[in-house]
């Protein structure tokens, strides 16, 4: 059946308009639920870095748990000054966007959590590059701004079974209790050592066999991100 050009034009225009309208309605309707998911995932990640598991807990309860543990948040700059102390404004800060800015304009969030044993922990977000795409995580420190309480890492698409193992306990557990500063108060960060770290190495953990580039990516992420906080941490340690 042949149709005139006029028919084809009108047909396409009507079709596109109808579909555009329906897609807009769907997108607008679902937006709040999607944004909630992203916020809750961030809360779960922050909680998991202080070893509070949220696996299998319904969404609404995650929010309550987050409020219970994380009491406030603030943001510092790379000179060690607190530049934003409104908790609600700190939470939406995305490291991916901050790291693209010049170093002196970056807002570096610090989340303050009170754990079950009444210890306070400071949580900092991390963002870096793995082998195939971004890797990210959260690192929590004791009040000495030096000893690691816990950490969580995740990735977009590292090799399954190899680099992807950074989000497992086997890789993350050895970080607990390690120190990011040496005795002279120099930032050492954590070295991820191919072939295995020595048992008495308080600045080193084992890399993943077969996941060297991802391991190096996590190591670089830790060093780069912690360097931004170095000034603030040193001020606090004094």
């Amino acid at each position: 059946m042949e149709h005139s050009n006029k028919y084809i034009f009108i047909y396409s225009v009507v079709m596109v308009v109808v579909i555009a309208i329906s897609l807009t309605i769907v997108a607008v309707q679902l937006k709040p639920a999607q944004e909630d998911n992203i916020r809750i995932e961030k809360m779960q990640n922050i909680l998991s870095s202080v070893n509070v598991t949220t696996k299998g807990i319904p969404k609404m309860q995650v929010m309550e748990m987050y409020k219970k543990y994380v009491i406030r948040a603030f943001a510092v700059n790379n000179k060690g000054e607190v530049v934003e102390s409104n908790t609600d404004k700190v939470f939406p800060i995305e490291m991916a966007a901050e790291l693209k800015k010049p170093a002196e304009q970056q807002l570096l969030p610090v989340f303050v959590a009170v754990l079950d044993n009444k210890d306070t922990a400071f949580i900092v977000p991390l963002r870096g590059k793995g082998l195939w795409g971004p890797v990210w995580g959260y690192l929590s420190l004791k009040t000495d701004y030096n000893t690691i309480v816990g950490c969580m890492y995740d990735h977009k698409g590292e090799t399954p079974g190899l680099g992807a193992e950074i989000n497992t306990e086997i890789f993350q557990k050895p970080f607990f209790g390690k120190k990011i500063f040496d005795d002279q108060k120099n930032l050492t960060s954590i070295n991820i050592i191919k072939g295995g770290a020595k048992p008495d190495d308080i600045h080193g953990v084992d890399a993943i066999s077969g996941g060297t580039i991802t391991s190096k990516g996590v190591e670089r992420m830790l060093r780069d991100n912690l360097t931004g906080y170095e000034a603030y941490f040193k001020k606090q340690i004094k």
Binding site: I19, S22, L23, V26, A27, L30, A33, Q34, N37, I38, E41
Partner: peptide
């Protein structure tokens, strides 16, 4: 394409 976008949006909202 329209149907796939709708499915994708639904998945993002309900099984993130």
């Amino acid at each position: 394409a329209a149907l796939v976008i709708i499915v994708d949006q639904l998945l993002k909202a309900y099984v993130y």
